[in-house]
Design a protein around this nucleic acid. Sequence first.
DNA 1: ATTAGCACTCATAAAATATTAGTGCCAGGA
DNA 2: TCCTGGCACTAATATTTTATGAGTGCTAAT
Lengths: 330, 330
Amino acid sequence: MQLLTDRQNKILKLIVDQYIKLAKPVGSNLISKKLKCSSATIRNEMVSLEDAGLLEKTHTSSGRIPSEKGYRYYVDNLMEPKKMNGEDMLKLQIVFHNQQLALSDVITKSLQVISDMTNYATVVLGSTSHENLLKQIEVVPIDDVSMIVIIVTDKGHVEHKNIRLQDVELDEVKKTVGLINNLIAGTPIDEISTKLEYEIKPIIGKYVKQHEQLYNAFYHVFNDFTNQEVNIVGRNKFLNQPEFSNVDKIRNVFNKLENKEVLHSIEEDDDNNIKVYIGKESNIDEDVTVIKTKFKNGAEEGTLAIIGPKRMEYDRVVSMLEYMKENIER
Amino acid sequence: MQLLTDRQNKILKLIVDQYIKLAKPVGSNLISKKLKCSSATIRNEMVSLEDAGLLEKTHTSSGRIPSEKGYRYYVDNLMEPKKMNGEDMLKLQIVFHNQQLALSDVITKSLQVISDMTNYATVVLGSTSHENLLKQIEVVPIDDVSMIVIIVTDKGHVEHKNIRLQDVELDEVKKTVGLINNLIAGTPIDEISTKLEYEIKPIIGKYVKQHEQLYNAFYHVFNDFTNQEVNIVGRNKFLNQPEFSNVDKIRNVFNKLENKEVLHSIEEDDDNNIKVYIGKESNIDEDVTVIKTKFKNGAEEGTLAIIGPKRMEYDRVVSMLEYMKENIER
DNA sequence: ATTAGCACTCATAAAATATTAGTGCCAGGA
DNA sequence: TCCTGGCACTAATATTTTATGAGTGCTAAT
């Protein structure tokens, strides 16, 4: 990337900021008022910026809007990681300083707050099932035939399943649970199905009546374990953004957000810092930007993301995410 | 309601059916082709039906569309509870005959199928917190300071919360849990907070160290218990319906669907049969219809609902819901 | 009672016109 | 060489005009 002149940087920044604010192509006149030179000069510079691939026009005589590359340049070079404004900070502080709340609730609540403040959607992704180790399973009988199996992982992820077992005595179930807790606690969740087969199946065959049925039931319970906790807040905020005023666009975005694989792809890279995926990079929609970071606090770890229009308040969102991460990690 | 002539009934039914199919106002010509009389005759009858408040026009010279009252008349008097078509039936059978699945999973899966087949959203509402009795609580320690509290109700509803307790010994926690399980199991969830105060607080004061902290923690756990399990499937289906092609409409519907109170109102009446709430009656949007029924199978009970445009395939949906209810209840 | 016929209405689409915010480029001045 | 005022030009947007057509209500004849 060829370096731009000082003035070009200033112009680009002004255009991006302005476009983010109003969602309308930015003309040379407006910029010339903010910089002390004529609109013709600005127009000349705009041509250079367009040649560099940083700006685009919506039609031959329109003002300019930032290209994807333009946003990228803005994020990497121009944007000043603006301090969080006092009001935003205060609202988050209230959540963070609530000692009653467990970490996961603090995260959910604060993302709710952020979503309301910014009008963007927010996401928490928990750790994946191969990072979660089985801590303990519990069984609670409900009636003659059904019972609840509860799985707790070392990261505090809990999942439960209602199972039906005909003609199986509760004692036998408890024996099986005891064996699982003793023999395979500590195993990554996604390896449990196989471990059950090779380490539990042979043993319960000896000690436990109805072992077939029991084995099958537990096999399914672990096999169905959701491999990742996903929590989206404020999906509907997209409906307030002008670039998503048409239903086809909305449908695309909402379908992508329901698709676990898409969300999964957000946390793929291992970078620990804040990362920005602009437009097509988001894998969601060319008009969507995702800003994410990983967090880790003791056992709990995962990914936070803010998802909004490409025309997003990058500086504000980045500083909020930084603030979140800091607060979560201590 | 004044009775209509045979022919008027036929005409009204044809208009509603046609409008449901194509979402376009229905003209006299089309109807005259299906009945053996002239379009002028049909027009005269249409005037009567409009006078009776059963039909409406979108403008002075447009065809007719059913009014809310018209839909109501159709549902109550005209609609023939159409047998389910073979294909629909087959797809649902596959889910119902899967012996592996617990009832709650069968319900979720089949509603998913129905949503895909019909392009409408579906909802399951569990029983409310005053109908759920505490069955058992369990505690799983995660690390020095945090642990998971799991609440299981007699209806098989499970909820968990991550709590933090500084300087509290695990034994003390277990003692408290034991007391709760012995003394207040069987209490409706929404009465537990008060019972904790009057029956547990005085006792743990004697037996348990750090009783203040423990009491507070458990108090919050029960207080935060979600008072109802709500599961919406296929919310996005609304985006495929022509009457929801504008974002304001979508925003309204989606916001209402996120609002627990609105969904709660669906299950208010105690009628055990299938009920149809048309348009404004739905409390969601004048273009939305909700069709619901209660179900009960042993301990598990709740409400099923299908939510779609007012221009809904009433006969098909009613027969599907009937079928669901039957299959769930045995 | 039914219906053919006809004037009338209004939504929808296409074409014509005006307005305006913006552009690119040129030629003259610092 | 860089900057700027001036000007012709472009295309989106809005407004008006005109045409088309699917539908109606009403009347008079069957």
